[in-house]
């Protein structure tokens, strides 16, 4: 009986990820190139925002994936806490820098977009600010991993931090709404999308979103492979020291 948990075995994960990696990376490259080229060269300007609307193709997918990356880290951390699957927590470790870069992209493009639209580089808008806080959470999570020598202790402590941090991230989100009503436009992607965005912008956006998603999966697979090797390396060095 095959089960999902088999992939938590490092050997099995290495085999499966070796198979998946070229596919996900390939799909990511195709989607990113198609979506960004389409979005940049072949979409009309918005009547109100002008050509800045083109920023949407990097800003929105990066923002969505920045949050999804943290959510994935939360899930894999919980799996580690409950079922002690090493690969799970190493995947969380591998995802953190990728999520942080996505957050940074969302912040930077948000600032560049805000400058012509709102007349200021940085606006303490609830959405922008929550991404800044998310960025701080990523930094803290990664710093804690780096600071602890024993890999299993580091896994446990970062998982606890990820859990507690997630709760506080949600509270911060609501606190920020209370704190400042904000200038940011409403969610770009929602079920009643017809009201927010027309098809000309919608199709390339979905493709770039898929591109960012597959890029995230590919990078996490690739970096998890590295983390597994690094963990193996640590085990071997410890073994040599004992011999």
């Amino acid at each position: 009986m095959s089960s999902l948990w088999e992939y938590a075995n490092p050997r099995k994960f290495m085999a499966t990820s070796a198979f998946l990696l070229p596919w996900t990376a390939g799909i990511a490259a195709v989607c990113l190139v198609t979506g960004l080229v389409w979005g940049f060269f072949f979409t009309p300007d918005d009547f109100r925002q002008g050509s800045t609307v083109k920023i949407i193709y990097v800003h929105v997918p990066a923002a969505i994936m920045a949050i999804n990356a943290w959510f994935m880290m939360l899930v894999t951390s919980i799996i580690w806490v409950i079922r002690r699957h090493h690969v799970s927590v190493l995947a969380a470790k591998a995802a953190a820098p990728v999520g942080m870069v996505f957050t940074l992209i969302a912040l930077a493009t948000g600032a560049l977009w805000g400058q012509p639209m709102w007349g200021t580089w940085w606006e303490w808008d609830p959405r922008l600010t929550s991404f800044l806080i998310l960025f701080l959470f990523y930094l803290g999570y990664m710093a804690l991993w780096e600071a602890i020598e024993n890999p299993d202790s580091a896994a446990d402590l970062t998982s606890v931090l990820c859990l507690v941090g997630s709760v506080f991230a949600v509270i911060s989100r609501y606190a920020l709404l209370f704190w400042n009503q904000g200038l940011h436009q409403g969610a770009t992607l929602s079920l009643d999308r017809e009201q927010n965005i027309s098809n000309v912008y919608w199709y390339p956006l979905v493709i770039t979103l898929a591109g960012f998603g597959f890029l995230f999966i590919a990078l996490v697979l690739y970096r998890t492979r590295t983390e597994i090797r690094a963990r193996r390396l640590k085990a071997l060095i410890a073994q040599e020291r004992m011999a």
């Binding site: 806080i133 701080l136 959470f137 803290g140 941090g165 506080f168 911060s172 920020l176 704190w179």
Partner: peptide
């Protein structure tokens, strides 16, 4: 490191308290 970990967690308390 402690400051780096704790400060983001302080944000909601600070917002509501100062507000």
């Amino acid at each position: 490191l402690l400051s780096l970990l704790v400060l983001p967690l302080y944000i909601p308390t600070l917002i509501f308290g100062a507000l």
